[in-house]
């Protein structure tokens, strides 16, 4: 028996979400008395691989062959399923990010394993296997029961604390039997978001809505974000208008995030927007309209003009840092 974790790295470094995943998997493995095994498909140094041990990986299976660099959902599914069978894994966890969303459903079919998407906590019971999760984009909760022997979960980022257990992992360099010629997906171009924090990974997010009036007014959002080490986000009309890139759009039809702090400036708090941000631990709303629905979901509110309030907050953060 094993809990298998699919980890991801970026330029040779593991993402924070991967450490969260390993911590989460380790907690499950402890409850059912099994091992925690991590898979890494990328070229990652031995030192970096060992970091997965800090969070409890007993074993790491590393596939560093550059031929498998391109994410081909079908090929990755075969690779992971093969390892899941070989390791006799009964639980498989992936991050609830772009890659996890692409692979988990395919694996569910291939392994005939029931899937729970976007889990935010540990299963409430293992037999029957029950996980508490959001439905209706946060307007409800449900207990999802998985009836198959094998189970797959995707874990929402920022929803599980990092827990150090300092294991010394065994590392296996894996060369798969299947050949990379099966890869059907060809990447012809890639635009990496450079220097900026990835929105779904960020602990703090500063977000602007239509109340910011014009894309020219985003300087204060960016400056505050920079000072706080935060990522920037926006409401849907803002990205629809092309004021900001689609990748920043949060909400039901955009990104779903759960930072520790979400600062919403000039956002009315439409139900579809809240669907993407309501899991934030603390929400701050800045809005000229005292009746804006965002205040119902916010922890702290300021009724005022964002163009005036944000510069004051910038000054206050500078003072705090000084």
């Amino acid at each position: 028996m094993a809990v298998l974790v699919f980890t991801e790295s970026w330029d040779g470094k593991f993402k924070k979400s991967s450490f969260e995943l390993v911590s989460y998997a380790k907690a499950m493995a402890d409850s059912i008395g099994s091992k925690t095994i991590a898979i890494s498909i990328a070229s990652v140094s031995q030192d970096e691989l060992n970091k997965l041990g800090i969070y409890g990986a007993d074993k790491i299976i590393s596939l560093s062959d550059e031929a498998f660099k391109t994410l081909d959902n079908q090929v990755y599914t075969k690779l992971i399923a093969e390892l899941a069978d070989r390791e006799n894994a009964n639980i498989l966890v992936l991050a609830h990010n772009n890659t996890g969303k692409a692979l988990a459903p395919r694996l569910s079919v291939r392994l005939k394993a029931g899937l729970v998407s976007a889990a935010v906590e540990l299963p409430s019971s293992y037999d029957p296997f029950r996980v508490y999760k959001k439905v209706f984009s946060g307007k409800g909760f449900v207990h999802q029961v998985v009836k198959t022997q094998k189970k797959i979960l995707t874990l929402s980022s920022n929803s599980f604390e990092l827990i150090e257990s300092n294991t010394t992992p065994e590392i296996e360099e894996y060369s798969p039997e299947m050949s990379a010629v099966e890869i059907k997906t060809t990447v012809v171009d890639i635009q990496k978001q450079t220097g900026k924090l990835i929105l779904t990974d960020a602990d703090i997010v500063v977000s602007g809505g239509r109340g910011m009036k014009s894309p020219d007014n985003w300087g204060v959002i960016e400056e505050l974000a920079e000072l706080l080490g935060a990522a920037t986000a926006c409401s849907r009309p803002v990205s629809d208008e092309g004021w900001r890139p689609h990748s920043e759009h949060t909400g039901q039809t955009g990104k779903i995030i759960a930072p520790n702090l979400y600062i919403a400036a000039g956002i009315s708090g439409a139900i579809q927007h809240l669907a993407g941000v309501s899991s934030s631990k603390c929400i701050v709303a800045i809005n000229t309209d005292k009746d804006a629905p965002i205040f119902e979901d916010a922890d702290y509110g300021i009724i005022g003009d964002a163009a005036k309030v944000l510069p004051e907050l910038i000054n206050a953060v500078k003072e705090m840092k000084a």
């Binding site: 439905v135 307007k139 909760f141 449900v142 207990h143 119902e296």
Partner: peptide, 27 residues
């Protein structure tokens, strides 16, 4: 192969704490 049981509504949030815009810094 999965089943959804016992739906419930999210818990109500505590009231929003308002900060005077003149003292936005307090936030």
């Amino acid at each position: 192969i999965t089943e959804m049981l016992d739906f419930e509504l999210p818990k109500a949030k505590p009231q929003c704490k308002m900060i005077d815009p003149e003292n936005a810094k307090d936030l």
